[in-house]
Amino acid sequence: MSVVALSLGCSRGVRPDSAVAGTKPVTGKVYSNEAGEKITLIGLEPGDAHKALVAFEGTKSELDGQVLVASVGEERRETQYWTLWRGRKQRFVTVNDRGGYQDLVFSNVNHTDYTYLKPDTAKTGALKVEKVFERYQDLEGDKKYQALLAFDRKFWTNQAEVQLAEALAATNKACGSKLTSTVAWDSVTDEQINEMSFGSYCVGPLESLQKLCERSDEAKRTIQQKVQTVECRVDPKAALKLEAQKVIWSVTSGETVQPEATTTFFTDNL
């Protein structure tokens, strides 16, 4: 953040077990947009701790009202803020240096929606960075807040199911079909849920079927006749199979069957 450093002391002590123990707030910048979203970034010293606080307001997400401690990383001309949420390391905020001006990219919890915010000079001028620091300390002692940081398997499986349902609806609309989809959650460990975004991994075959249907009526008829359901699961190796009228889409950490190969498989086997 290219803001003027403010030498501030803390008005009260920080608990020894706090994630911000040994730091103090020294910089602050507010970003906003016309939709009413506001994200505040508070830099923490010492600088080699690579930590910041991120406060959310007006984002229409469960993050509103929360202040999260972030690990700060630099990559080329962007600054990334990594935070813990529901047991997973998440990057909700990225600040881009556009060569003379900045913008902040905010991605929601499920990483399907992205919005842009600009530096807000007036709000930055009125910012009390120590108040945000104290707000975070208050939240750290709140049981409800701590529960939102703990791993939540049901939350992440529900997020994936919602994303999958959206892709399924788009496919059925394009194909004039009544396909169903499932995820074999019993094949997925908690560790894999932490590592992988199943909503993104599992939509692959549905997106390929949709594109085929958009190309030709023949593809629509074929898919209506030969496919009833799509199952996503974790297996030792990424694979795509068709058994009876069931598509079995196997994924593994860091690997899926690529879109071109998926489309070729359906073209050759349906």
Rank of each mutant, 00 (worst) to 15 (best):
K29F: 09
V69H: 04
L127P: 03
G87D: 02
D120G: 06
S18V: 11
T121C: 02
K29S: 06
L104C: 10
P25K: 10
W82T: 12
H50G: 00
F92Y: 09
D103A: 13
G100A: 07
G87T: 06
N110G: 09
E62W: 00
F92N: 15
V20H: 09
T112C: 11
Y101R: 15
G65C: 00
G43Y: 03
T115E: 13
E37K: 15
S32Q: 05
R86C: 00
A35K: 15
R76H: 05
F92S: 11
P119W: 00
F106W: 12
A52S: 15
G36E: 09
R76K: 13
A126F: 02
H50N: 06
G65H: 00
D113N: 05
E74Y: 15
N33W: 05
D48M: 12
T59E: 01
A35D: 11
A35T: 12
S18Y: 13
R77C: 06
E78N: 14
D103R: 12
T94L: 07
H111G: 09
P16A: 06
T40R: 02
E45Y: 14
V20S: 10
W85S: 12
T115F: 05
V54F: 08
T124R: 04
F92A: 11
R77K: 09
L84V: 06
L68V: 02
D113I: 06
E74S: 15
K128H: 11
S107L: 15
G43W: 07
E37T: 13
I39G: 04
V20Q: 09
E37C: 14
L117I: 05
A19Y: 11
Y101T: 12
E75W: 03
V20Y: 13
S61W: 02
E57G: 12
F92M: 08
V72I: 14
K38G: 03
G125Q: 04
V105E: 10
L84F: 02
S61P: 01
E74C: 15
D48K: 11
G87A: 03
V69P: 02
A49P: 05
N108A: 07
V69R: 05
T59V: 03
A21R: 13
L117E: 04
I42F: 11
E62V: 01
